[in-house]
Amino acid sequence: MLVREEEREKHGGKPVKYHGKWPFHRAYGFQEPVSVALSALNLAIQFHGWVSFFILIYYKLPLTPSKKTYYEYTGLWHIYGILSMNLWFWSAVFHSRDVELTEKLDCSSAVALLGFSLILAVLRAFSMRDEAARVMVSAPIIAFVTTHILYLNFFKLDYGLNMKVCVAMGVAQLLIWAVWASATRHPSRFKLWVAVIGGGLAMLLEIYDFPPYQGFVDAHALWHATTIPLTYLWWSFAKDDAEFRTSSLLKKAK
């Protein structure tokens, strides 16, 4: 494949995709070394963000008499962190060795994270604290995401359909956060705006693809790079939100 591309380049031809994928130069046995490295960095940043959130919630902020957190969205952020780390782990594995199993695990992990992120956006933006309301919102999204994952794994791994589903869920949650950021007086709404705008711009790299530069860096790899600072900022917002809500609830309790 790479030999064919070298011949094509000599004759002035442009790179083409093979089975829907760009040809990459391997390094140390990795099929897409840049994407692997950036996926690993994203995994590290997610782990750091989740651990720092955990320490803040349980060791720095006050707890209720029953040793529970005052912050009503603690469990949601824990699930988000676990799903995020799961995604970046399988992303690194997939870009290391592209086979059917790793591709399905990568796609499924991405869909699961996007689906849950949409749930998180709805529940936080609309301040849903009642369990019944949370279930009513979450159930249809979980059902849709589960159905889509089963379709990809056991019927057809449709790249076009999966991209449309992922973009739709991504745009939906960005719009929800944007509307909430414009309406709320949250002290960290600036961080939220930066994350929303940055996330929207980063999404363009997934939509407007281009061949890998020097056989190593394509649009998807650049998307991996943009998510590193955005992830750090996102967890910073989550911690600020936990502090803000805890402080507000303690003031009301006095």
Results as ranks from 00 to 15, higher is better:
1 M>Q: 14
1 M>W: 04
3 V>G: 06
7 E>N: 08
9 E>L: 15
15 P>V: 09
15 P>R: 13
16 V>G: 08
17 K>F: 02
17 K>P: 01
19 H>G: 03
20 G>D: 12
22 W>N: 07
23 P>T: 12
23 P>V: 15
24 F>Q: 06
25 H>W: 05
26 R>T: 12
26 R>Q: 14
26 R>D: 07
27 A>I: 10
27 A>P: 04
30 F>L: 15
32 E>N: 06
34 V>Y: 01
36 V>R: 11
39 S>M: 09
40 A>C: 13
40 A>E: 04
41 L>V: 14
45 I>H: 11
46 Q>E: 12
53 F>K: 09
57 I>A: 05
60 K>T: 07
65 P>Y: 06
76 L>E: 05
77 W>L: 13
79 I>P: 01
82 I>N: 01
82 I>S: 06
86 N>Q: 01
86 N>A: 03
88 W>E: 10
93 V>K: 07
96 S>M: 10
96 S>R: 04
101 L>I: 14
102 T>S: 15
103 E>C: 06
104 K>C: 12
106 D>R: 01
108 S>C: 13
114 L>H: 08
114 L>S: 14
115 G>S: 02
116 F>V: 04
118 L>H: 08
119 I>G: 00
120 L>Y: 08
123 L>C: 13
126 F>C: 04
126 F>M: 03
130 D>T: 07
131 E>T: 07
132 A>E: 14
133 A>Y: 08
136 M>D: 07
137 V>M: 05
137 V>N: 00
141 I>H: 00
146 T>D: 00
147 T>W: 10
150 L>Y: 09
153 N>K: 00
155 F>C: 00
158 D>C: 02
158 D>M: 05
161 L>R: 14
161 L>T: 07
165 V>K: 02
171 V>W: 08
171 V>K: 05
171 V>Q: 01
172 A>V: 11
173 Q>F: 14
176 I>M: 10
180 W>H: 15
180 W>Y: 15
182 S>M: 14
185 R>K: 11
186 H>S: 12
191 K>A: 04
197 I>T: 10
198 G>E: 01
204 L>M: 13
205 L>M: 07
212 P>L: 10
213 Y>L: 15
214 Q>I: 05
214 Q>A: 15
217 V>A: 13
221 A>M: 05
221 A>R: 08
224 H>P: 11
225 A>Y: 00
230 L>R: 02
234 W>M: 09
243 E>V: 15
244 F>L: 05
245 R>Y: 11
248 S>G: 04
248 S>Q: 09
248 S>D: 11
251 K>Y: 12
251 K>V: 07
251 K>S: 03
254 K>W: 04
